[in-house]
Design a protein around this nucleic acid. Structure first.
Length: 130
DNA sequence: TAGGCCATCTGGTCCT
DNA sequence: AGGACCAGATGGCCTA
């Protein structure tokens, strides 16, 4: 296994927080030369782009997360929970907009269709009022 | 300790 | 050709 300078730079960019000492860097530099350079360079660049893209997705998730009211407000939500709750919250707001009554709890259809139940967000609002 | 969640790497596909 | 997007694989961390 060998490392090229750009790979070394990449490692330095990514892992500077690990506080590697000079000796460790010298060991890394000593293995710097490997075959198939262009392909490896392209792969490293693609990996970096993918990391950026993933970070962008995470930023979007964070933005969306802050729009969803929870109790407590800073409750940790997984990505799938964020998506599901966001959908529920949109439905909740849509119901309130439709009825025009912000005080009136909205109802959601349950799985069985025949039954209706209190919407999650109305439920938490009612709990807070008690 | 198992299961859930996540970040990262990787290769494939599609688009410009 | 190069970049964006996506899904699968993998390994680490955390919690019940």
């Amino acid at each position: 296994m060998g490392l090229y300078p750009w790979e070394l730079n990449f490692i330095m960019d990514t892992y500077t927080s690990y506080q590697m000492n000079e000796e460790t860097w010298e060991q890394l530099r000593s293995v710097t030369q490997a075959p198939n350079a262009p392909a490896q360079k392209q792969r490293c660049q693609a990996n970096a782009r993918e990391r950026d893209r993933t970070q962008n997705v995470n930023m979007a998730f964070n933005t969306l997360r802050h729009l969803i009211p929870t109790e407590p407000a800073d409750r940790k939500l997984s990505k799938i929970e964020i998506l599901r709750l966001a959908g529920s919250y949109i439905t909740h707001l849509d119901n309130q907009l439709y009825t025009g009554d912000m005080e009136q709890p909205c109802l959601k259809k349950s799985d069985t269709v025949y039954k209706t139940s209190l919407c999650t967000f109305c439920w938490s609002t009612l709990k807070k009022k008690k």
